[in-house]
Design a protein around this nucleic acid. Structure first.
Length: 565
RNA sequence: CGGGCUGUGGCGCAGUCUGGUAGCGCGCUCCGUUCGGGUCGGAGAGGUCCCCAGUUCAAAUCUGGGCAGCCCGACCA
């Protein structure tokens, strides 16, 4: 029964004061979700219906590529995580049972699924397999935020592929790309599949699915030429610097008292920021001190730097700058550096640059990389809007919500957890794995973000909690009421999921609530409809008004509904 | 973890500086009214003022400690 008079849909005129993200505000206002604590959210009846729809799309498409659904527990022995080496992760919730045994709340299920595979899979004949479940994840997030977008407990579809070799993994990965493309198309979202960082976990390939939205926590670099990458790893050609100074035969010191920032040096010498060399000293694990350089108007990309170095690094303090790098903080530069220098490729081929002189209040001008110092070249800067992408387009950068990710794991978990098989030759080999995640809550929130307007949510058909909202304006005893009741039954019998506003409320209130909740189609039955022999319908997306014949209203409404996005 | 901020009825807020027994709007209940874009009028219900301790004749208000939540950043296997 989805009569609004008895349904729990607590809509609000005002959003909670501390809610900022559109999806946060609207999902609370529309009565879809409620907060129980930081990063802890309840899905109320209508919200859960949308969540379930997202889940079901995911389930159908993963089934379609041969995924086998199962269900693994959230509460797990710590031992598994100690084996995989992930027990120290601070986001992992740890607890003890009454016998003081160590347990964890799973933040993802590689350990569990790999353990089962290690027990059940013995032969190459048992492979390949794709296993998945849709289960709650627990993560002690340092900062839950934006309603349902980053929570400490959330539902995730996580699938895992198990193959005998890389070739099999490539196939499973490709199947997931197919499935994911279909899932996000079916969800009605605008989305991009972008290359993403493989992290330090030894993966070989990774993509993320990103839904552009203002509330997104990630930035993606896109171009009309089809380039799409997370800015964490995006690579592009830099724009040229306007107004570079004339080159000199050799670097020449210049006094720059107190000028320790790009802006101050640039202002003092009257050169553009892009004519400066920004030098950032770091200490690299297992490699020692390294001086990294980017153009003055660029930013260092720490993930790209780490990938280029092949090792983690950390920033250094002022004392280290003096003692290890032999430079004055604020005036450090590559000319005469006593440590290894790694320079961003955007500095290559430039001349007449300004760099720190390593002495107090001194910069050098006329610096030319390759002539005045010999760096290791690498791509280590953050790409910017206006850069040129590898296939020729111009880069733009958009915030986006990560709605899914796919990742080639290799033997990262199968080795420590003993998931091996015997090949035809009888030799034992590690199973080659991939993992693939989707957050249905993020699909739902991204959809709210992408299509909401001033009046509220505007669902695509695929995710709406109800297909249509029927607004009844007549009071019991009036003909309009009878007509609405009858239409409600007819629509339901025809297979439409209908939210029927049968409350004793004013028309304005009902219309406002209907648009806030955002079902794709609204049908109104009132005295006017009965008199005119026509019903008013509103297409939520665009708020377009339509008129339906009173006889066969159900048929006409369904036909209209089918034509909606 | 660093920075900023907030805890007062279901929601949004005032009151705190300057201590004196808690107020407004929305919502809720009842009566009447209205009835195709959040009608209008009247009468009500509802609050450990986040918690603990202290100062004081008296604490939402002052002091100390704690807890919770939000935003920015860092982080996000």
């Amino acid at each position: 029964m989805t009569r609004l008079s008895s349904y729990l849909l607590p809509t609000l005129k005002e959003a909670p004061a501390d809610a900022e993200a559109v999806s946060h505000r609207l999902m609370v206002r529309a009565g879809l979700v409620r907060q129980l604590g930081a990063g802890m959210w309840t899905w109320l009846p209508a919200g859960l219906r949308s969540h379930r729809r997202a889940e079901q799309i995911v389930r159908e498409e993963i089934d379609a590529i041969g995924g086998q659904e199962m269900l693994m527990p959230v509460l797990q022995p710590a031992e598994l995580w100690q084996k995989s080496g992930r027990y120290p992760i601070t986001e992992l919730f740890k607890l003890k049972d009454r016998r003081e045994a160590d347990l964890v709340l799973a933040m993802t299920h590689e350990e569990a699924v790999t353990t089962h595979v290690s027990q059940a899979v013995r032969s190459y004949r048992d492979l390949p397999k794709i296993l998945y479940h849709i289960q709650v994840k627990e993560r002690d997030e340092p900062r839950p935020r934006a309603g349902v977008l980053r929570t400490r407990e959330f539902t995730m579809k996580d699938s895992y592929s198990f193959d005998r070799d890389e070739e099999g993994l490539d196939r499973a990965y490709g199947l997931h790309i197919q499935a994911y493309d279909r899932i996000f198309d079916r969800s009605g979202l605008e989305w991009h599949r972008v290359e993403s960082d493989v992290g330090m976990m030894g993966g070989t390939d990774a993509h993320e699915y990103m839904a552009p939205a203002a509330a997104g926590e990630n930035d993606v670099a896109l171009s009309d030429a089809g380039y799409a990458a997370n800015v964490e790893i995006a690579s592009a050609g830099a724009r040229a610097v306007e107004g570079l100074p004339e080159p000199l035969d050799a670097p020449e010191p210049v006094e720059t008292p107190g000028a320790t920032t790009i802006d101050s040096v640039s202002g003092m010498l009257g050169v553009p920021a892009g004519a400066l060399i920004k030098a950032i000293p770091v200490e690299v694990e297992g490699r020692g001190p390294v001086l990294t350089l980017v153009r003055g108007d660029h930013r260092l990309n720490e993930i790209k730097l780490q990938n280029a170095l092949g090792a983690p690094f950390r920033g250094v303090g002022e004392a280290e700058v003096r003692e290890v790098f032999g430079a004055v903080p604020g005036f450090i530069g590559p000319v005469g550096a006593r440590v290894e220098v790694v320079a961003d490729e955007a500095l290559s081929g430039l001349e007449g640059l300004v760099a720190g002189g390593n002495d107090p209040d001194i910069h050098l001008r006329g610096v030319e990389p390759g002539r005045d110092f010999e760096p290791t070249w690498a791509d280590i800067r953050v790409v910017e809007a206006g850069d040129t992408c590898p296939n020729g387009g111009t880069i733009r950068i958009e915030p986006a919500i990560e709605i899914g990710n796919i990742f080639k794991l290799g033997s990262r978990y199968s080795e420590p957890l003993g998931a091996t098989y015997l090949d035809e030759q009888g030799s034992e080999r590690p199973v080659i794995m991939g993992c693939y995640g989707i957050g249905p809550a993020r699909i739902v929130a991204a959809s709210v973000e992408q299509f909401a307007d001033e009046q509220g949510i505007s669902w695509p058909r695929a995710l709406a909690p109800f297909d249509a909202e029927l607004v009844g304006l007549g009071k019991p005893g009036e003909e309009a009421h009878e007509v609405a009741e009858r239409l409600y039954e007819e629509l339901r019998e025809a297979g439409l999921q209908v939210l029927y506003d049968d409350r004793a409320a004013s028309p304005g209130e009902k219309f406002a609530d209907a648009e806030l909740v955002g079902c794709p189609l609204r049908v109104t039955v009132g005295r006017k409809s009965v008199e005119a022999g026509r019903l008013d319908a509103q297409v939520r997306r665009g708020r377009e008004e339509r008129s339906l014949p009173l006889d066969d209203a159900a048929g006409a409404a369904i036909e209209l509904w089918r034509s909606l996005p």
